[in-house]
Design a protein around this nucleic acid. Structure first.
Ligand code: MN
Ligand code: MN
Ligand code: ZN
Ligand code: ZN
Lengths: 135, 135
DNA sequence: GGCTTGAGTTAGACAAAGTCCAATCTTTAG
DNA sequence: CTAAAGATTGGACTTTGTCTAACTCAAGCC
């Protein structure tokens, strides 16, 4: 999951995104780890060494990456959105005590009995969230 | 799903909640319809006839009802929490265009292949969200 | 090299959801 | 009825995220 600078530039270009310095920094933060990070944390990590990216740019970039299908949002905590560099279909284990989010492989879970959709509707995705806690 | 005033008082008492005027109004709003309402909308509906309940009380009461297991939260929209008067296990269909949330009966969906949990962990719940859209 | 142009970045104002607090009011036990 | 405990309130505050108008910067052209 770790990309060279050049590979990252290619990745962005392939998704129709101009590879600016800030976008590459943010992409690096996202793709160099397989975690589920909040915007806040991405901002902090991006500016860890040198403060060079603004909050507005982080939000702009995350929304751009999401719209272009580079990353996806994980909605489990009402307080903030998490960003997932893994856009393959998969599910999540959510530790409600610690806030930790872990992946569940898509093929691990079998879901059957999907209701028929109203005509003219399509399924955009199926998210399974397994909420767990200590004890 | 419609309760008389007396039945509502009993319901709250059974959950260890003093049945104040405001709480009964809010409970009425929640339990007289089988919908998934936001705090904002609950506030508006509660004060539809007479403005008599504050925003703080609506939030206090929703959190209290949730903690006591009278209602549950539905986390599908990063912008706001929805409150569900149905605490039985069940799942949700989420129309991403309109924001509409519909129930899927628990026994309609079959989920198999749950991952083994780390020792000392228990599953608090499994939420399936089927995101759908037009086209 | 200078100039133009358009895309990208930015600080800071703004908005919306939700929490907190100290003063006040209501409920309830006795 | 009374007093203590519990509930409610307006408004300040916090947090997450969006918006805007000014500014920066790289690319293409001369
Ligand atoms: Mn968003
Ligand atoms: Mn909440
Ligand atoms: Zn994931
Ligand atoms: Zn429901």
């Amino acid at each position: 999951m770790s990309y060279s600078r050049e590979a990252m530039v290619e990745l962005l270009r392939k998704h129709g995104i101009s590879p600016t310095h800030q976008r590459l920094e943010i992409a690096h933060v996202l793709f160099s780890r397989c975690e589920h990070l909040s915007a806040d944390r991405i901002l902090a990590l991006t500016n860890e060494r040198f403060a060079e990216t603004s909050k507005a740019t982080v939000y702009n970039t995350l929304n751009l990456f999401r719209d272009r299908g580079l990353i996806r949002e994980v909605i489990v905590d009402p307080k903030r959105v998490f960003y997932d560099p893994n856009t393959q279909p998969h599910h999540h284990l959510y530790n409600v005590d610690t806030g930790e989010i872990t992946d569940i492989a898509a093929d691990a879970l079998e879901i059957s009995g999907m209701p028929a959709l109203p005509p003219g509707m399509v399924t955009e995705g199926v998210d399974v969230i397994v909420r767990i806690r200590a004890l």
